[in-house]
Each structure stands twice: as C-alpha cells, then as structure tokens.
C-alpha cells in the first residue's frame, strides 16, 4: 500500500466512524446449538437456537418475543426493519427455511431449529447477491427502509420462479409496500436479477 493510499484510507475510515453514530451490527457470535426448545425454571423464558446467515446461534427469549426483535435486538442484525404492525408492509421479510416470511408475524420460538437468512447474510464472501446488485444498478431504492424486505421478497419470488414475468413480479410484491420508488425500478431490478442469474447459470 502506498503512503498516499494509507493516508486516504486513514482519512476516510476516520470520518466514517465519526459520521456513523449508529454502530454497524457485529457478526453474530457463533454459539453452541441447542437441539430442542427448553423451558427455563422461571416459566417465562425459553432457550431457542437456530442458524442465522449460516451461523448457529441461540438465545433466551420470552415466548412473546417476535422473531424480528430476536434478530434485531438479540443478534444485533438490524438490517431487517419493522414498518407496520398488521403484517401489511413486508419491511421485515426474511428467508426462513427457504421461504420468504414476515418476521414481525412470527414468534422467535416458532423459528426454533430453523435456518434463517436476513439481508446481512445475502452477500457471499463480500460479493453482492444478484438482487442486491440489481437494486443498486436499477435505482430500486431511495430511502432504503423497505429495501431489505423488498430484496428478501425478491429472493422468495426468484426461488419460486427464476424467470418471472412483470405481472408475476408485481403480483408477488403484494406483501411489500414502498412509498418512495413507485415500485417501477424494483420490478426492473428483480427482472434484471433474474436475467443475470440466468446468464450465469
């Protein structure tokens, strides 16, 4: 690394920390997995374990703890957002055992033993997932708040149908609300990701 690069790296990293008042979520600590749901002595706490983004993790939760709160607060994976309280907006969409689900309408105890992927787990070895890349390329986001849910819904759509029509995409986005983009570039992004995945296959 040249001195110039070192200096600029230092400058940019220094600034980023200053501006990033909100710390990035740390990687989930790998923990030993518990095979079955066990109820603790006090009667209100349950130990659950699941694989999140490829890492085994476990935690003690109340029965009423929503999966999204477990992911956000216990695992500190705050990429999954909460946008409503009636299961309409889809901001909290994650992939659970291969299917898109609304993590705000799922109890953490229901996810015990499951395999969960959140937006943080989509990129592999630092390479963006084709949908992430397509959302970026096609300007499929503005404020970014619905985006993780939209991308995960997109993953669900392409899991079901690798080459969906515009109509199919629009229909299958019925569980996700975006207030910024008017959806057009989201639809284009999913179309484009489908094409790029097909090209790569």
């Amino acid at each position: 690394m040249s001195l110039w690069e070192k200096i600029t790296n230092f400058l940019s990293s220094g600034y980023t920390e200053q501006a990033a008042a909100v710390p990035d979520a740390p990687e989930a600590e790998p923990e030993t997995s518990n095979d079955s749901l066990s109820r603790k002595e006090n009667g209100m706490s349950y130990t659950i374990s699941m694989t999140v983004n490829g890492t085994a993790c476990s935690g003690d939760v109340e029965a009423r703890t929503l999966l999204v709160d477990f992911v956000r607060d216990h695992l500190e994976l705050t990429g999954t957002n909460v946008g409503c309280d009636t299961s309409q907006c889809g901001s909290c969409t994650i992939i659970m055992d291969g299917k898109s689900v609304k993590s705000c309408t799922t109890l953490a105890v229901q996810a015990d033993g499951s395999d969960v992927t959140t937006i943080e787990g989509l990129a592999t070895n630092g390479d963006l997932h084709p949908l992430q890349q397509a959302f970026w390329d096609e300007h499929g986001l503005q404020c970014g708040f619905c985006t993780p849910g939209m991308i995960m819904a997109g993953v669900g759509i392409l899991n079901e149908n690798p080459d969906p029509s515009e109509e199919t995409i629009r229909h299958n986005l019925e569980g996700n609300i975006c207030r910024c983009t008017g959806y057009q570039n989201i639809v284009k992004a999913i179309q484009s990701a489908a094409q790029s995945t097909k090209g790569a296959a």
Partner: peptide, 20 residues
C-alpha cells in the same frame, strides 16, 4: 449510481431505530 446504496442493500442503514 448512488453511493448510499451499498449500505442500504446490505442492511447497514443507520436508522434511529437501530441505535443501541
């Protein structure tokens, strides 16, 4: 292309609700 997008598409948005 937007420079803000990489953080959003990777779930690294710095929203107030994420503050801990």
């Amino acid at each position: 292309k937007r420079v803000e997008d990489p953080r959003f598409i990777q779930g690294k948005g710095r929203y107030v609700a994420n503050l801990s």
